[in-house]
Nucleic acid binder design. Sequence first.
DNA 1: ATTAATCTCTGACTAATGTCAGATACATGG
DNA 2: CCATGTATCTGACATTAGTCAGAGATTAAT
Lengths: 290, 290
Amino acid sequence: MEAIARIRSFNRTVTHQIGALEERFLGRDRSLGASRLLFEIGANGVEVRQLRARLNLDSGYTSRLLRALEAEGLIRTGRSSGDGRVRCVTLTRAGRKELAVLNRRSDQAAASLLSRLPEAQRPAFVSAMGVVERLLLASAVRLRVENPRGRGAQYCLQCYFAELAARFETGFDPARSIPTAPTHFTPPQGFFVVAMLNGESVGCGALRCRPDYGEIKRMWVAPASRGLGIGKRILQRLETLARKRRVSLLRLETNKALTEAQALYRSSGYHEVRPFNDEPYAHHWFEKAL
Amino acid sequence: MEAIARIRSFNRTVTHQIGALEERFLGRDRSLGASRLLFEIGANGVEVRQLRARLNLDSGYTSRLLRALEAEGLIRTGRSSGDGRVRCVTLTRAGRKELAVLNRRSDQAAASLLSRLPEAQRPAFVSAMGVVERLLLASAVRLRVENPRGRGAQYCLQCYFAELAARFETGFDPARSIPTAPTHFTPPQGFFVVAMLNGESVGCGALRCRPDYGEIKRMWVAPASRGLGIGKRILQRLETLARKRRVSLLRLETNKALTEAQALYRSSGYHEVRPFNDEPYAHHWFEKAL
DNA sequence: ATTAATCTCTGACTAATGTCAGATACATGG
DNA sequence: CCATGTATCTGACATTAGTCAGAGATTAAT
């Protein structure tokens, strides 16, 4: 079958079968929309803003669904610590109990699907699902050049630095690193690329155009979104931007703990060179001629 | 990731991504429900009954959707030729035009999904989709022992004989074949198994318990549902029924044109034997000890 | 300090989806 | 012919989903 026809057929079959399955197991006493909201809130709570972004809901509608859950005593809403406009939703004890019920039912649904297949076919089924999901997500990722002071960028940078602090043997203190200002990543001196998936920022990367070379910095991908090729796409986008600015040499440095990053750089045509700066957190220096 | 978690994650991702895609391309001027109905009616028309079964809709709701499409001048309803209670829906010229538009949009949606992936990953994506769809469908198939005079059984038999007539070199005339009555396939003398998928009959098979052996007959699977392992499952079910009735030998005969059937029998442990009857349409005779 | 933008909430809607109890017409088996 | 069952349709509802405009609180930008 031709690719387009296969995809269309897949779409129809999957939405039909999975939809029926979900309804049978989840659509008991609460509307599916409310159930989804409970799932998305999860055990740790989220900002209402995030809920809306992830599920792509209207703000009024979201609010109404939340009020309903609140009336049921399943959630509690409070101010976000950082920004007084933003509201945070967390589950109450009853809410956590209800989520556990939903999770159990959802597990049952998945198990019942699996149980209807002969054992021999299950591994193929599950791994094909993995492939489809991964590539479907990858196809939904969008890259955008953004202001490094913007919310998406700031969120990524915060996660990035937190990860460095956690993964570097020595911890990480931005003050000890070579100083960088947001303006270095603002056109035309540089660029800050953010990867978006379903309304959320899931990765970033930056290019700083110095007089004699371009510098790649701030490469980061959210742990939950790794393996989708987002890092590679960000890097390629930065390289394209560099070429447009007539940069002929790209350089970057990295810490020995960031092994995936090193693999990415090598597979993207970067090769290791002698240290070209005295970044105290760096163990490896790479460059690539454009 | 564990299988259950993978399936749950797949379900959420896929419904979300595919749902968004469909809405963006199809949900323009008509409700998604009505669009799906148009798709399902298709160029050749269907019985209202079938529509309801396939989409699992309430009869009142279906009727209302059909009235709306009729008011738009997209469909025409008429009596079924066979059964006066049943209504047949066909597209008008305008309806066919509208379906073409929907098909084009649906193609675009699929193409846009594909286009967002690097070329190298597309074959893997499409083939994984094929695997998931196939196994999802396979898992939704249900076998049931039914009355051979029932609607599902009669439908399958009709298709079965039509296929024999088309595929046999000599054509097929039931009167020339060894006569068989429905009672031969009615418990306890025999069994008639029907495979159901989404409310439709997509395959059948029968067992006739003779004094000294059991006979497998009427093995058929709808062309659109082949490759899902339905034939094998029907055969296994018939064997289980035979064992329960203490049948120790199973026999069957088949025409040389039905090569898939022969492959199925061989792979299920049947081996070819000398003719044990004088069925004029048979070229190969098989048996299996239970 | 003022203005503009952001986030959430409420009220007022509309459309879509789904359910249920008859009513009607036809079919089937005795 | 009659009893029973099936397929469809209609009217009357109920729920879910979604939209839109504006208000109030807060933050960011100038």
